[in-house]
Amino acid sequence: MNHWNDLYALILIVFAIYLFLSLCFFGFTRYLKKRRINDRYLALVKKFRLFYKPMAWLVILGGFIVLDPVSHGLIILLVAGFGYKQLGNYISGLFIRASPMLVTDTLVKAGKIRGRINRIGNLGMVLGTDQGERWVWYHSFDRTGFTLISNQTNVLQRALYLRSELSKERLLDLIFDHPILALGKPSNLKALAIENTYLLHYTLVKGARYEDFINYLHDHEVITNSTENFDA
């Protein structure tokens, strides 16, 4: 890529692919709903569409940097530096929004915040609380941990911070060995910047008690906490 016209062509190609995929997503979603196929396929469609946008922007930014690696790279670094917090907030939101349970009218609890989702944005959510509408950044949910309570199935998805010297693969095996996790429901283990610290999003089977799962982890020398600050 040596000319601005090449970058314009790249933008048009990325945009055309997005339009094509949007039409495919729309048709495929209608087909799945009409056939009443398992909701997890709808969740996969939603997740794929959600992550396409940032990937498309990365491709465009990559093309912009290739035109002039030094000056354009410096511009991108400066912009990323000024928008570091919002960028991290957006990335946190991607993983939170990927949950199929995250829809409007779902009850959310994060620390002392409790409310029903009124609107879902790219950087946060508007919750209807007892004190009125409240904007909550996604990084607030990552910091305090959160619970999504489905108003239809009463299935709980929770967030839990773990500390363990086990490898991520061994820890995943340990987690999924416990029958309290709902089969077919999303569970995700993410390694954090702090050594041996992880953030687990998990879904319980209906009627299960999360205390039983936590006790199971403690029995296997896995420390749990509601935030990433284990020393507090």
Rank of each mutant, 00 (worst) to 15 (best):
M1P: 05
H3F: 11
L10G: 01
I11T: 05
L12C: 05
F15Q: 04
A16N: 03
I17P: 02
Y18S: 10
L19E: 04
L23E: 05
C24W: 11
C24M: 13
F25H: 13
F28Y: 15
T29Y: 12
T29D: 15
I37S: 10
Y41Q: 13
Y41L: 14
L44K: 08
K46Y: 14
F48M: 07
R49S: 14
L50I: 05
F51N: 06
K53L: 11
M55E: 05
W57V: 07
W57D: 01
L58A: 15
I60C: 06
I60R: 03
L61P: 07
L61C: 11
F64D: 04
I65P: 07
L67R: 11
L67E: 13
P69D: 07
L74H: 02
L74K: 07
I75N: 11
I75C: 10
A80L: 15
G83C: 06
G83P: 00
Y84I: 15
K85W: 14
K85M: 06
Q86E: 15
L87R: 00
I91W: 09
I96F: 06
R97Q: 09
S99I: 03
L102C: 03
L102Y: 03
L102T: 00
T104K: 15
T104R: 13
D105A: 14
T106Q: 13
V108S: 01
G111Y: 09
K112T: 11
R114E: 13
R114I: 12
R116E: 15
I117D: 09
I120H: 05
G121S: 10
L123Q: 11
V126S: 14
T129L: 08
T129Q: 08
D130C: 04
D130G: 01
Q131L: 13
R134L: 15
W135N: 09
Y138V: 03
Y138G: 04
H139I: 08
S140Q: 14
S140K: 12
S140H: 14
R143I: 02
R143T: 01
G145E: 00
F146V: 02
T147D: 05
T147F: 04
L148E: 02
I149D: 09
S150R: 08
T153K: 10
L156R: 10
Q157G: 02
L160I: 08
L162R: 10
E165G: 13
K168H: 12
R170A: 14
R170M: 10
L172P: 00
D177A: 15
D177Y: 12
L181G: 01
L181R: 03
A182Y: 09
G184Y: 07
G184D: 08
S187V: 03
A191I: 07
A191Q: 14
I194S: 13
N196G: 01
T197G: 04
T197W: 04
Y198Q: 04
L200R: 01
Y202M: 00
Y202Q: 06
T203Y: 02
T203M: 04
L204A: 09
V205C: 04
G207W: 06
A208D: 00
A208L: 02
E211P: 00
F213P: 00
N215R: 06
N215F: 05
H218W: 04
H218R: 00
H218Y: 00
H218A: 10
D219S: 15
I223M: 06
I223G: 00
I223Q: 05
T224V: 10
T224I: 01
N225W: 01
N225D: 06
N229C: 00
F230N: 02
D231L: 12
